[in-house]
Simulated assay, not measured.
Amino acid sequence: MKIGELAKATGTQVETIRYYEREGLLPETSRTDGNYRIYGEAHAQRLSFIRHCRSLDMTLDEIRVLLRFKDAPTENCGEVNALLDEHIGHVAARIRELRSLERQLKGLRDLCQEARDAAHCGILNELARQGSEGGSSAAGHVHGAHGRSVERKSINDKRK
C-alpha cells in the first residue's frame, strides 16, 4: 500500500508517518519504479503500536526502547518494566502539577465572585500583581517535575 493508504488504514496523518520514518521508528520501505513508498501489513502494525504508545503519552525515546524489545522477542523484558515504572512516575508528577494548577486557578476564580468592570476584577488584578512581582502566575506557569517553572502549554510537550 502507498503512504496515503497506510495513513487511512491507521488513522495517521501522512506527515506523521514521514516524521516517524525520519525518527527511525518505522523501517525503510521498498519503493516502486515511480519512487513511491510501498508499505505492508508489518508497517501498519508497527505504526498502530507507535500510535498506541503515543496515546499513553510515551516519548519517542521510550517508544524506541519498546520497539527494540518488540523486535527482539527473546530478550528479557526487565528494562520494559523499568521503563513503564518510570513513565508511571512521570504521569504521577504531571497529575500533581495539574492538581496544583487547578488549585491556583480556583484560588484566582474565588477572587472575583461577580461580574464587574474589568478595572476592579480580582482575577485580572491578582494576575497583574503576581506578574509584576516576577512570581509565577497561576494561569501561566506550573512547577515542573524538576522544580523549574514551565509554561503551562508545554506540560504535555516537555518530555519528548
Rank of each mutant, 00 (worst) to 15 (best):
V14H: 12
P27Y: 06
Y39W: 08
S154W: 14
R103D: 12
L101H: 13
E41W: 06
L25G: 01
Q130T: 10
K160A: 04
I50Y: 03
K2F: 13
G11P: 12
S30I: 04
G144Y: 04
I155L: 14
K106S: 11
G122N: 09
C53P: 07
G78Y: 08
S55Q: 13
G4M: 12
R64G: 07
K153T: 05
A93F: 04
Q104N: 13
Q13P: 05
I50A: 04
G78A: 10
T29H: 11
S55L: 05
T74N: 12
A138I: 00
L67K: 10
I63R: 02
Q113V: 02
I38W: 01
L127A: 08
H52K: 11
R148K: 13
L108D: 08
P73R: 06
A44C: 09
G107T: 07
S154L: 10
D157E: 12
K2N: 14
H43A: 06
L47V: 00
L56R: 14
E41K: 14
G34V: 00
A9R: 15
G134F: 05
L26A: 02
H146C: 07
T12Y: 05
I50F: 00
H52R: 14
M58A: 02
K158P: 00
V142N: 03
K160W: 03
V91T: 08
L127S: 02
H90C: 08
A139N: 11
G4V: 03
H120A: 12
E151C: 04
A119D: 14
L111S: 08
N76W: 09
R129L: 10
E5S: 09
L124W: 01
N156G: 13
H143P: 01
R68N: 06
H146F: 04
S137E: 10
S48V: 03
S132K: 13
L66G: 02
E102F: 01
R31H: 09
L67E: 02
S30C: 04
D157H: 08
S48N: 13
Q130A: 12
Y39F: 15
S149N: 06
D61Y: 00
I88S: 07
K153N: 05
